[in-house]
């Protein structure tokens, strides 16, 4: 028992010291999905996720807050201005020197520029705007860059990814690096990439954020769940984005 613990500890430290492992070839979760789920995601009319993207499209040009401005007042046509934005997130906000994801950036725009209240993390409106912004980058590869500014966050996210936690004593890596493609009941384990988020998940019967999905993973290993939008999940999101570099944005996706 003792020697097993030592071996595992040695394995873990090896991972920490070297360049973190990335599955090869990288595969989007859609490749592990059933024909039904693929059909839902690939048809822009029948995809239930598009209801949220349509909501986001409407909100984009609706004025909000004391400023009377809409997103479009500053950013004009999202189809041009938002193209290529999602693949660069999460990134450091120069004003606060904090890591923000798309959801955080949208809420910053609301509070700073529109003088409107921030939207709830899992609200239909924030999911809608995030989906609409993300959709403009569909097909573009994720390309976050790790630099001196965000390295601290990247390393925290990486460490969380490789840390065993919860009653199940599992780390992210145990499912998503070592066992992808294999079955957990009737689910095929994916490589755990964030490229389709926010997604319409059949299990949820609604749209949900990447952070909601990550919380479900924490629940799955019976670990304490960090709050949506928390520093822990933002850091993990940055590591996942780095790990998925090269995969293309599928927002708004559909998953089981």
């Amino acid at each position: 028992m003792c020697s097993i613990t030592i071996l595992l500890a040695a394995g873990a430290s090896l991972v920490h010291g070297a360049q973190p492992f990335r599955p090869q070839p990288l595969k989007s979760g859609i490749e592990f999905s059933s024909a039904e789920v693929r059909a839902l995601q690939h048809d822009d009319f029948s995809s239930p996720a598009m209801l949220w993207a349509t909501r986001g499209e409407k909100l984009w040009s609706e004025s909000a807050g004391a400023s009377g401005k809409s997103c479009a007042s500053c950013h004009q046509d999202a189809r041009a201005s938002m193209k290529g934005v999602t693949p660069r997130y999460p990134q450091i906000d120069p004003g606060t020197a904090r890591l923000v994801n798309i959801e955080g950036r949208i809420n910053q725009c609301r509070t700073r520029h529109q003088q409107a209240a921030a939207l709830g993390y899992e609200s239909d409106d924030l999911l809608g705007l995030t989906a609409y912004v993300g959709m403009q980058s569909r097909g573009l590869p994720l390309n976050v860059v790790i630099d001196t500014q965000n390295r601290r966050h990247f390393e925290r996210g990486r460490d969380m990814y490789y840390t065993r936690m919860g009653q199940m004593d599992l780390a992210c890596t145990h499912c998503h690096d070592r066992n992808f493609g294999r079955k957990l009941l009737n689910d095929t384990i994916s490589q755990g990439h964030g490229n389709p988020y926010p997604v319409y998940r059949l299990e949820w019967q609604t749209m949900g954020s990447l952070h909601r999905r990550l919380r479900a993973c924490f629940f799955g290993v019976r670990a304490e769940r960090p709050a949506a939008g928390s520093q822990d999940l933002l850091d993990l999101e940055l590591f996942l984005a780095w790990r998925a570099q090269g995969l293309t944005v599928e927002t708004p996706g559909v998953r089981k």
């Binding site: 009319f45 029948s46 209801l51 909501r55 239909d124 019967q205």
Partner: peptide, 9 residues
């Protein structure tokens, strides 16, 4: 014709 309605049912 197709219709999709956002509703929790």
């Amino acid at each position: 014709v197709r219709i999709a309605i956002q509703h929790p049912m």
